[in-house]
Design a protein around this nucleic acid. Structure first.
Lengths: 203, 203
DNA sequence: GTCTATAGGCGGATAGAC
DNA sequence: GTCTATCCGCCTATAGAC
């Protein structure tokens, strides 16, 4: 912990506190405590709360969309790319389950957060490429006709929701930590199976 | 608006503000403004912020789990029950898309929120019944072997995530309000199809 | 029941010593 | 770079008039 620079420790601490409490609910004192640092130092390294928040938020956004590039620029077979993406996506969310909740909520509070934060991520290129990949598979008769939108919604839903909703699912299904975790691990395969079986049903 | 009682208007206003801002981020003044009422009146009708919050939270929880009972106590064929549940679930979440995000986040902040709030909802009965229904279908050879846990995670994911993640999905997929809404409407059918096709693949 | 005024405390931000 | 002390505004909560 202490071998990290002050900046690093602050950012890690701020991520923890902001993701749980949100911009307005977070206390600078909590972040300072979590980082094992003086409250005044937060203002030394980052001018104010808002600025610290925006830096954290932007980093998290890039992490999320980084995985999507991986899905596009592989040369593997379509089915394998789906499998790789599902595994990667589940692993990323498992690292920090509150993060997607945090992003979804903050974006609703403040829609401008999305705008202009994507200079480096070419979403249009990713979309175009992925549509071409899907169309090629459809043309070859490998998969049924499906839109990029529907496929992506399905995959993202099945990967992300069961992890972000952990406390509720554990409660509703009466699961302990261990069996919940086994279920999620098994999903790295079963989600791909579900998606791929759906694609292979030719209509 | 004004034909509603003060209590009712406060609760509606508080729901709006709390779901977006969370317990700590919400301002009593914002709730008062939203309810078109004096700030002092909030404390007249509800002793304090925490108590107002808990009342709202509990109501939302019951709304979520109310839909699950509907899934169990129908006498319709299994496939139709799935279809009915998916439609109902999507409709409920569409009514108030921030609500699941709010619940997921608050429960993570404060795990005790779940405990003791379910005197009236017999989760264990619902689980047992649903397991029996699934087992009967498996025995009759109608569906493949699947656990309650996996099935529920899949259905909930596909219904809830695309709605709570609306702003992100619209941005990533470059959708306008209209085409996004069409996609979600179409999911009332396509999600059921996906789930049912998966169940019918006998392994 | 409704409203104004104000108490009281918390939290972000800064000044300034070291 | 680090820490203490402190300012000041904001927000919950209540007192008390009507």
């Amino acid at each position: 912990m202490s071998e990290l620079s002050a900046q690093e420790r602050i950012k890690i601490a701020a991520t923890k506190v902001f993701t749980l409490k949100g911009l307005e609910g977070a206390r600078m004192q909590d972040i300072a405590d979590e980082a094992n640092i003086n409250k005044a130092m937060l203002h030394y390294y980052f001018r104010n709360k808002k600025q610290l928040f925006e830096i954290i938020f932007e980093e998290k956004l890039h992490k999320i969309f980084g995985a999507m590039e991986l899905l596009i620029f592989s040369k593997d077979a379509f089915e394998n790319r789906i499998r790789a993406f599902v595994e990667k996506q589940i692993s990323i969310v498992l690292e920090f389950p509150v993060m997607p909740i945090f992003v979804m909520l903050e974006v609703r509070k403040n829609p401008e957060l999305l705008e202009g934060k994507f200079k480096n991520i070419p979403l249009d290129v990713i979309r175009d490429n992925f549509r071409k990949v899907i169309d090629a598979e459809v043309m070859s008769g490998n998969i049924r006709r499906i839109s990029l939108e529907e496929l992506l919604m399905n995959v993202m839903s099945l990967c992300i929701y069961p992890i972000i909703a952990e406390p509720i699912l554990k409660y509703v299904l009466d699961l302990n930590q261990e069996s919940y975790f086994e279920l999620i691990e098994a999903r790295k395969k079963s989600v791909s199976d579900l998606i791929i079986n759906d694609l292979k049903i030719l209509k």
